[in-house]
């Protein structure tokens, strides 16, 4: 059947474009795209690499290469609260990775995995531990989330990481909006994912009490285990002997959350601090009153950036470069 008889078929226009016109246009398109990409690459060489989904984020951090100077370890307060890109405002020469995972506990396998992300040739190997009360509980050290990422394998995000890096020159010029995530309560949960491991998060409107109930439940099931702290200290000692700098801090959160954790979790900050300092870590003190949390546990994105810069300044002041 001749498609020209088909009523749905659009007849081609009567113009007589030549092959030359077609080839010249294709060359012009290629040239324009290459030129724009070159200009964009020069403009935004250091811009943070934003991801499209959360699965890519955790694949990338789980299977990141051993090419970093500083690795942050912890739970969601670390991956939502510390932006490596903001830290680089203060420590521009460092390659930083945020290895925080949901309910991340200070278990030996996770700590070993974090160490493996360091560049052995680097003279500035540093591990920064975000020690929350929950991260020292038996439930957290099971590290279900991290294990599930490991089981899933590297996936396309990691396989195409080099390609994505090359395609960075073709990043859109308009910043995409923060995607909305269905929230369990009547607030809008907004999150952006970055290849360096940070999740910029906020709730509109903020719900500063909303996480308290969940943490009450968490600590009714599982409390701080001294054996976990002892194993962590052991690991810190090993790192120090290997020449790796170690910093530890309690990620800032709301006063209500600190009170709840101190009351229910069995976490005594002074004891944790002394134990880690005895093992060779540098303890950094931060007060939650300077940073806003959107849900009573995690820092909202603007405050996370401010906190990350403060954290970097404190690290820098201990080891001036």
């Amino acid at each position: 059947m001749n498609t020209a008889n088909d009523p749905l078929y659009t007849a081609p226009p009567a113009t007589r474009e030549s092959w030359v016109r077609l080839i010249v246009t294709l060359c012009a398109i290629t040239l324009a795209v290459a030129t724009a990409g070159y200009i964009r690459a020069r403009q935004d060489a250091k811009a943070p690499d934003q991801l499209t989904n959360v699965q890519q984020l955790f694949q990338l951090k789980t299977f990141a290469s051993s090419s970093h100077d500083l690795v942050l370890v912890g739970d969601s307060r670390v991956y939502r609260g510390v932006s490596p890109d903001a830290m680089r405002d203060v420590l521009p020469e460092l390659r930083i990775l945020n290895m925080g995972f949901s309910s991340g506990g200070m278990s030996d396998p996770l700590l070993a995995a974090a160490q493996a992300k360091l560049d052995r040739a680097s003279s500035q190997q540093t591990i920064v531990l975000g020690v929350t009360p929950f991260s020292l509980t038996p439930e957290a050290v099971a590290n279900e989330h991290w294990h599930s990422c490991n089981r899933r394998g590297p996936g396309s995000a990691v396989q195409h990481a080099g390609l994505r890096s090359a395609l960075k020159a073709f990043r859109p010029v308009v910043e995409p909006p923060i995607p909305g995530v269905p929230s369990p309560n009547s607030a809008q949960y907004l999150q952006k994912y970055y290849a360096d491991g940070w999740v910029a998060s906020k709730m509109v409107p903020p719900q500063p009490q909303s996480a308290l109930r969940q943490y009450q439940d968490n600590f009714s099931r599982s409390q701080v285990d001294p054996a976990v702290l002892a194993a962590l200290c052991q690991k810190v000692t090993t790192w120090r002997e290997a020449g790796i700098r170690v910093f530890a801090f309690r990620p800032p959160t709301t006063d209500e959350m600190v009170e709840l954790e101190d009351e229910l979790s069995g976490y005594v900050e002074e004891d944790v601090r002394q134990a880690l300092e005895a093992a060779g870590a540098d303890w950094l003190d931060f007060s939650g009153e300077f940073y806003l949390s959107y849900d009573g546990s995690h820092l909202s994105s603007d405050d996370a950036i401010r906190f990350s810069q403060d954290l970097a300044k404190r690290i820098s002041s201990r080891y001036p470069r």
Binding site: V24, T25, I29, A36, R40, F170
Partner: peptide, 22 residues
């Protein structure tokens, strides 16, 4: 169209790359 289409195609391709959404 003979003169307009080639630069228009270049502009649309540039837009499809650099103004694309997530």
């Amino acid at each position: 169209l003979h003169w307009l289409e080639p630069p228009l195609f270049v502009a649309l391709v540039l837009a499809a790359i650099f103004l694309r959404g997530p």
